[in-house]
Amino acid sequence: MDAAGGKLKSVRLTAPVRPEDLDALELGAVVYLDGVIYTGREGFYQRIIGDGQAPPVDLASLSNVNFHCSPAASRNDDGTFTVGAVTATASFRFSKWIEAWFALSGCKMIIGKGGMSEADYKSYFVPNGAVYLTTVGYGTGALLGRGIKRVRDVHWLDELGIAQAMWVFEVENFGPLLVDCDRAGNSLFEVHNRAMKAKIEAAYEGLGKPALARFGETDDRGEELI
């Protein structure tokens, strides 16, 4: 399942991304980006999708690459920004917004941490022609920070704070990123989860049953947990 010969394939793409670039992406390939990307996380999605507010800028004309991220950054007295390290936040938490998000944003590439479920990929990514790239580590914050050449804009900074605002970044050689979801909606993480199942079972073999179970190990609230 690893790239042939132990060497991972590496590609460099420009954002906004083109459909033909995405068609060629293979699971586990390493990607570096140039161009424009913008961030989004719970505060941002809640405002737009949950509360129904209009996005602060025309998203489709900006870019089609959305990054689940908030940077280690600060606002300088002259109104400019210092961006230090940059890493992603876990993406599966935004699952409930993803369907509406694609409809509203026209995004074709989501970058984040840890991927989303293969079910989300098949249901929402594939029909929208989108792929998912995961950051590496986690996290390679200094390397990704180096890839940010300019902060073009920060929207909703006062309303949401530095950690939840929408940051628009101009990036160069921004990476490394790994393809978790290809155009067919396969998930690299879930391929690997399935491959290690037997070895995990073996590690538990022979260990006694716990004296007290707990909710979460069963969905049956009527069951007694002893």
Binding site: A72, G141, A142
Partner: peptide, 12 residues
């Protein structure tokens, strides 16, 4: 890279 640039090693 973090040491060279004197920037935080992780964004979180």
């Amino acid at each position: 890279a973090a040491k060279e640039d004197r920037r935080a090693m992780c964004g979180d």
